[in-house]
Every structure is written in structure tokens, then in C-alpha cells.
């Protein structure tokens, strides 16, 4: 009895996570395409210029701040960045939903394992301790 109950919950979780991934990808792609159209309509005729790579060191907060300022000014590139950030958020949301799922199933070991994965992602958001 216990086993079928867990299998049922696993099924629900699979369904939710499957949908989450799909919606995450399609919404972020739609936003990136709209941003791309705006970007090309404004800068499409300019000469392309990507200088040799120069290492930057900007925190996530600075990047998000710049993005929102760009969005307020209606920049296409900021909208593309929003799409990219949403895409990054999709797998992270998937991990958070799994955490909730394991907690509902009272699977303490996997709650801990999922928390460890989230912690590692958090470290990388903080610039990877660098």
C-alpha cells in the first residue's frame, strides 16, 4: 500500500516537473525572440563588433540591475538577457520543486541530497567563491 502511494506521488511530481521544464523553455525563448527582433530592428544595419574577450567580474545583482534598467529603457538586448535568466531559472526551479516533492513524500535522505545541490548552485551564483 505504502509503495503504490509513493509511486502515485512520484507520477504527480513527474507531471509537474515535465510541464515546468516545457513552460520554462518556451517562455524564455519567446522573450528572447521578441528581444532579438527589437535588437535587430534597432542595430541590424550596424557593423558587427566583438572585441577580444575581456574578463569581467560582475555580481549577479549588478547584472540583474543593469538588465532591469535596460528593460525600462526598452533595450532589446536587456529583453534577451531576461530570456536567458529565465532559462537559467528553469532547472533551478526544477530542483526546488523536487525538494518540495521529496518533502511531501517524507523522504528525508533526498531532501538533504536536494538541499546540497541547491547549496552548490548558490555558491556558483555567488561567483564560485572567487
Amino acid at each position: 500500500m505504502e509503495k503504490t502511494k509513493q509511486a502515485l506521488k512520484d507520477k504527480d511530481l513527474q507531471y509537474i516537473i515535465g510541464n515546468l521544464l516545457r513552460w520554462g523553455v518556451w517562455s524564455s525563448m519567446t522573450i528572447a525572440i521578441i528581444g532579438g527582433i527589437i535588437y535587430l530592428s534597432r542595430h541590424g544595419h550596424e557593423t558587427v563588433y566583438y572585441p577580444k574577450f575581456e574578463e569581467q567580474d560582475r555580481s549577479m545583482l549588478t547584472i540583474l540591475g543593469d538588465m532591469f534598467r535596460g528593460l525600462a529603457d526598452g533595450h532589446g538586448r536587456a529583453l534577451i538577457m531576461l530570456g536567458i535568466i529565465l532559462l537559467f531559472a528553469t532547472p533551478v526551479m526544477r530542483v526546488i520543486f523536487s525538494l518540495i516533492g521529496f518533502a511531501v513524500e517524507k523522504d528525508r535522505m533526498y531532501v538533504v541530497i536536494t538541499l546540497i545541490v541547491l547549496l552548490i548552485i548558490f555558491v556558483s551564483v555567488r561567483g564560485g567563491l572567487g
Binding site: F53, A78, I84, L87
Partner: peptide
């Protein structure tokens, strides 16, 4: 997805992620 995101956020902060290049490539 999770593995790539863990390194992608480091790349983003170092300036490796260029919206103008990413957009056509990802789509």
C-alpha cells in the same frame, strides 16, 4: 540543465554570455 546552469552563472558573471550571440545560437 542543472549542471550547465551551475557553470553558466559563473560564465555570466565573467562576461562570457553575450545576448547578441546567444539569441540566434540558442534559438
Amino acid at each position: 540543465g542543472v549542471t550547465a546552469t551551475a557553470s553558466a552563472v559563473v560564465y555570466l558573471q565573467r562576461g562570457y554570455v553575450q545576448p547578441g550571440i546567444c539569441m540566434p545560437v540558442v534559438i
